[in-house]
Write a protein that binds this DNA or RNA. Structure first.
Lengths: 193, 193
DNA sequence: CGCCGAGTTGAACTGAATCAAGAAACGTGG
DNA sequence: CCACGTTTCTTGATTCAGTTCAACTCGGCG
C-alpha cells in the first residue's frame, strides 16, 4: 500500500480516473521536498527542472523587474506549482518561485516525466491535465485583470479562497491582485467598514 | 498524398515530430469550415464543440459584459483558436468567438478528439502541446498586463506582429491591449510623431 | 530594549476612462 | 457610381482609480 499513490489519486480524481496501480507507478517517480518559509525554490534566470504539487503550505511565483516584483500566482495545497513556462521550454526565465509558508511538495523532474511518456499513456495524460488546468487558471486571471477593478478582484478572491487573507501577507496578495500594498490597504479598510 | 496532413505537419513541427502518416491520421478527423467577416463562430453561453487551427484569415475571442466586450485573443494563420476553456470543460461560457476577416479553419470535434485519444498517443500529444502553447501565451499576456503600461504593451505587440495593425481594426487591438479605442488612438498619435 | 519589515494613512500626481462632438472610411441600395 | 447611414477613428475636456512618496504605527524577534 502506497501512501503517495493514494494522495495523488485523490488530487487527480476530479480530472480523470485511473486505477490505483497507475497512480502508484506515477508516484514512484515523485520526490518529496521541504522548504522553509521564504526559501527560494527556483531562482531568477534558472531553468525549472520540476513540475510539482503542493501537499502542505504555500508558495508563490514572482516576476522580478527593476527593484520590484509582481506575484503571478499563489499556490496552496493540492495545486500544481512551478515556473511552468520554464519547465515546458527548458529555458531560463525571469520568474522565481518561493515558499511563503513552511512547505512540502511532491515533484517530478523533466527527465523523469519524459521517461514516463515513453512507458505509458499516464504521463502524457497527467501533463495534458496539468497544462489544461493551468491554462484555465491563467485565462481566469486575465479576464479578471481586464474586466474588474482592484476592489472587485479582491472580492472575488475572498469568495474563492477566504482563508488566503489569514495565511498570506497582504503585500503578496496585493501584488497578486496587481496593485500596490497601499491601495490594497485602502480597499480593505473601505470594505470592512 | 494528403494536403491537409502536410499542412498540419508543418504547423506542429516546431512543437514535436511525428511521421507524416501519423499526421494524416489526425488530418482525417479534421473538418474545414469557412466564415464570413464578422460571422459569429461560437456564441455567448454556448459550449465550444471544436478545437481549431486557423489556416486563412483571423478570428477573435471576446468576453461580453454589460453592453461592452473585451477581446481576450486575436488569432491568425497557423494558430490554435477557439473558446478553449469551454472546450475543456464542455460547459457554456460567456465568451464568444468571431471571424474578423474572411476565415478558413480546420477543426476537430470534442468527440472525435476523445476517439483519437483511444486510438493513439498522438491525440493526447496534440492536446498537450495545444494546452501548453495556450498556457504560455496566456501567461505572457498576464505578465504584460501586470508589468507594462498600455503604450509598452502596444510597442511589444508591434514588435511581435507588426502586420496586425494593417489587418485588424483599431478597436479590436485596443480591446486586446486592455484599453479604450480613444486611449489607443492617442498612443498611436504619440508614437508616430 | 531597539530594530526592522509590514501595514496604515495622507497628499500630490498620473495613466487611462469617460463623455461628447466631429471627421473619415465603409458598405449597401438606389 | 454616387448618396446615405453606420461604424470607426480622432480630438478635447473632465474625472477617477490607482500610484508614488513620505511619515507614522504596530508587532515580532534578535
Amino acid at each position: 500500500m502506497n501512501k503517495t499513490g493514494i494522495l495523488i489519486k485523490k488530487i487527480f480524481d476530479p480530472h480523470f480516473e485511473a486505477p490505483l496501480e497507475v497512480w502508484e507507478t506515477f508516484a514512484s517517480f515523485l520526490k518529496q521536498s521541504s522548504y522553509k518559509k521564504n526559501e527560494i525554490i527556483k531562482g531568477v534566470n534558472k531553468t525549472e527542472k520540476h513540475l510539482s504539487i503542493i501537499i502542505e503550505g504555500s508558495a508563490a511565483i514572482f516576476l522580478w523587474k527593476e527593484n520590484s516584483t509582481v506575484c503571478l500566482d499563489l499556490c496552496y495545497e493540492n495545486e500544481f506549482f512551478g515556473d511552468y513556462m520554464s519547465f515546458l521550454t527548458q529555458k531560463p526565465t525571469e520568474l522565481f518561485t518561493q515558499a511563503i509558508e513552511p512547505t512540502e511538495i511532491l515533484s517530478i523532474s523533466y527527465l523523469d516525466l519524459n521517461e514516463l511518456y515513453k512507458r505509458s499513456q499516464i504521463g502524457m495524460h497527467i501533463s495534458r491535465v496539468a497544462a489544461e488546468s493551468l491554462f484555465i487558471d491563467k485565462q481566469t486571471q486575465q479576464i479578471e485583470l481586464l474586466m474588474l477593478t482592484a476592489e472587485e478582484r479582491y472580492l472575488k478572491l475572498l469568495e474563492r479562497q477566504p482563508e488566503i487573507v489569514q495565511r498570506t501577507s497582504q503585500k503578496h496578495i496585493a501584488s497578486y491582485l496587481g496593485i500596490t500594498p497601499e491601495s490594497f490597504s485602502r480597499i480593505r479598510k473601505k470594505i470592512t467598514l
